[in-house]
Design a protein around this nucleic acid. Structure first.
Lengths: 232, 232, 232, 232
DNA sequence: GTGGTCTAGACCACT
DNA sequence: GTGGTCTAGACCACG
């Protein structure tokens, strides 16, 4: 915090980075829906920037895979097929599994502190019943988990994957688990970290990811689920 | 909030404004103490900016009166005399009294909502006993009050005055009221707004300001207190 | 006065402060009109200074609120909406009301002497019929009034507000009162101070401010006027 | 292949994407070395494009983390610390481990065919002793491995990580293994896939990654290695 | 292409 | 030596 710690460098991010954040946010919350075209004139006006930095920001999202570029047609929000949903969760599993391993062998204390706070947010969101707040807290929990790994590259990968996860959830809201279950699953993850039970933690994170895939698509992903579980 | 509201213009403040905020904060929390010289080379390095924008930011604070300029010597954090303390609170009284009047005749509903939230923060801070948090909440309450007036000029004046108030408090910590009393005084202010009792509100805000002056300096300010009270 | 030969310290104010004064003057007299962009290259050439100090001076005016900064676009003279006019006069009322109170309980003798001189200037200006001279004298009267309060912070606030007042007047010249009325209103203020009638003084200063608002905007502000008057 | 005469859609990728490829290549081969500044005027001239698309391409690489942006200074090739090297290999391990799992449970036949071809390239490069060719073949092998997973997101992550791996190797050439060892390690990976021994494959890929980290930094990472191995 | 913004480096004045 | 001042040059954004 700057509030009590004295003088810190002023945080100055480039305009393109700020715009990219705005766009990522808009995609995440479904304000820009899959398939939507991003008209640069309109967007530039809405964001209060000129087209140059806007185009640069959009290229960032193209690189991330959140936007799709059609030459001489424009840029569109990427549409997710069933196959993508599976890919996303499998990739998340890879990233978060590695993060879990690093957390268990790294600064577990810091992780516990930060994740306990994140869980608290999730509990509060669950109490209000606000689905968006719950999703926000869910996402924040996982972002914190990966952040605790201390591996910047895993963090960057997770950022994009979590936005894509939100895109899935926004479209198919019925697959989102009940509040109680959501809190419970995350609490179990935190418990495993507390107890230092790495094997248990890895099993839980795997279930956490693959159960969702199952919930969304009951054919095929089941196979993935079974075989992947077999590895332990 | 950007979180749920779709696309908003990206907030892009000038570097000088950001630096000014940092410096104001540092002065407010006493990290830059009254009388300290602001070496531009060091500061620029600490803040990660070059001397140009830093100098521009410092000129902003000179204009505000938080810094004092000595030609060819440098810039120093303004030192507050006893006289200044009285001036600050009298000026705050002028600003906040006007704000109170505007609030009572303006959108009282919005004011009630925002101030209730601010009071809640103050209560929580009081519970923890964290003096800095209490001061933060105290300051935020008054900033909100003036903000509810809808008068930008009063807001700008209040900003500087509140920073100066913090400088006073940082130096003379013993004059700060007990947690219970602090909460109580603010709750009374809120009550008066709730009940629409303007006369009562003005009396309270006046006591709130002048009591502090009395607490700091028991001679002279008493006279101010008495005569000013006589106006109603 | 310095002219009688006594050696006084050279008033070596910083270059930025001198430039800021020049700019403030130019804005006040409408030489730099609301909405005008301040091209730094041109201005630097005209003022015979380099861009560095000029930029520092301009940041002072940004802090005062006389200039508006658009990132990567430049600095512009602030444009005043009808809302701003009301805000300015309400803020002036807050500052001058507090000043009046301090004057009545402070060194009333000095105030009488200085304000009598100021009134004399106003009378002379009124006789010539020079509107600019009248505005200058009007402004000087109020600056003196606040200065007599002995409160530096009120003085600083008043300085900016008076410049903004001039901006209003420059734009809408037709609202400025007749010479006779102008002199009369100020004479009444002085009379109330002479007689030590604080209540009367406060009523007069309030009318003095709010009548102008009414004159500029006859719809809505009337309501403000009425309700505000009700406070006494 | 396209050479047999069938008409295929022209791969009309956007200009920004093509430029990004060029830049990525230049960074990978060390033509643009870590710490180098990318002057946009010069680069635009060298690449025969205008600054617009070039800037868009560079923003893609910023997003990937290959470039670092310093506001109002320019863009620089990211410099890799020892910490980064470890992060890169740990992240690669996460991605390639997941890919291995998917390959073993997916179309193993196609993987075998493609990886056998890749290994052959590596053998030939080893025979010539050309270090660049060896690195190219090494990289291609792993790219193929991840590609066989059929997970686009893992592929995208791997792309950046492999470029970063090359940056490491370009800087510290002495850590690169002997030709014979390099071929041997990859042949063992292929063997494990042929035999369908998933457990063995995962052990091998883990050693493949972490041995390199050990080779680069012999202190500390050893601990990482040991504990990570403990997971199986 | 123009102009705003920031950085870097040099010179001068004061302590 | 340090701060005050100015110039040169590059990046950044807008039209």
């Amino acid at each position: 915090m700057n509030s009590h710690g004295g003088l810190e460098p002023v945080p100055r991010r480039s305009t393109a980075a700020l715009i990219a954040d705005q766009l990522r946010s808009a995609i995440m919350y479904g304000h820009l829906a899959p398939g939507d075209q991003l008209g640069e004139t309109d967007l530039a006006a809405q964001l209060g920037v000129s087209r140059g930095p806007l185009r640069e920001a959009m290229q960032r999202l193209v690189q991330e895979g959140l936007l799709r570029s059609e030459r001489h047609r424009g840029l569109f929000v990427r549409e997710l097929e069933a196959e993508d949903v599976r890919d996303i969760y499998v990739a998340r599993l890879a990233v978060e599994r590695a993060s879990c391993e690093l957390v268990m062998r790294g600064n577990r204390g810091e992780a516990l502190a930060r994740l306990t706070a994140s869980l608290e947010e999730l509990v509060q969101a669950a109490e209000t019943g606000d689905r968006t707040a719950m999703s926000d807290a869910d996402q924040a929990f996982h972002q914190t988990l990966v952040s605790c790994s201390g591996n910047r590259r895993l963090e960057r990968m997770a950022q994009t994957l979590l936005v894509e996860t939100r895109m899935c959830l926004t479209v198919m809201q019925d697959v989102y688990p009940e509040a109680a279950e959501l809190v419970d699953e995350h609490r179990k993850l935190l418990d495993a970290i507390t107890e230092g039970d790495e094997k248990q933690l890895l099993n839980l994170i795997e279930s956490h990811m693959l159960d969702t895939v199952d919930r969304i698509n009951t054919t095929g992903p089941a196979a993935i689920r079974r075989s992947t579980s077999a590895q332990n």
